[in-house]
Amino acid sequence: MKSLETLQAELTAALACSLELVPNPAVPAQSSLRIRSDQALALAHFLRDTPDWQFDFCSNVTGIDWPDRTEKIKVKRLVDGVEKEVEETRTVPGFLEVVYHLYSIARQDGPLILRQRTANRDTDTTVTSLTPVWRSCEFQEREVFDLFGVRFDGHPDLRRILMWDGFVDFPMRKDYVEPDDYEYEPTPHDEVLERAQRHYPAGEAAA
């Protein structure tokens, strides 16, 4: 496997598309390339069909939810005429991400990890479906749609797959609130007791 930087340079040269390298600090250092949704289909076709690449096997498709987060940054501000370093919080908007793990069976090579991201988490959650290129994405993209709410543009059959059709939530998102049907242990303490008392209507909770 060539290094990802070479791959990035070669792909950028071949297709004139913009690719962002997403580093992976963990031990295996399987870094990935973030691709733009509008260029995804052309790139996927190129990766599959060009003899030098031949990524003919899309192994794994998955979604990741990155909710809005706040981070603290230090800014220099004029406070009472004196320049001071002030800590400010700012909100980083969240997004949904879809990750594809590609392998080449013909060249016994891989993985090449591609990522697509949506604009945000609620109004614009569309990315390009790669099912027309790799059939193995079909059910997995449906699963990502079902559990994360990512819409795949160009998917032939985008329906819920694991949950039932009338279900409205996206349960794998980090902010999903599950239905309150949990049965609490009969002798709860502290935090669990509070949750349990909130859970049971007054009559039922024989506290």
Binding site: N24, P25, A26, V27, P28, Q30, S59, N60, H101, P111, I113
Partner: peptide
């Protein structure tokens, strides 16, 4: 607690 990062094993 492994360090931050990701891994795909198969």
């Amino acid at each position: 607690r492994p360090k931050a990062g990701e891994a795909y094993g198969r």
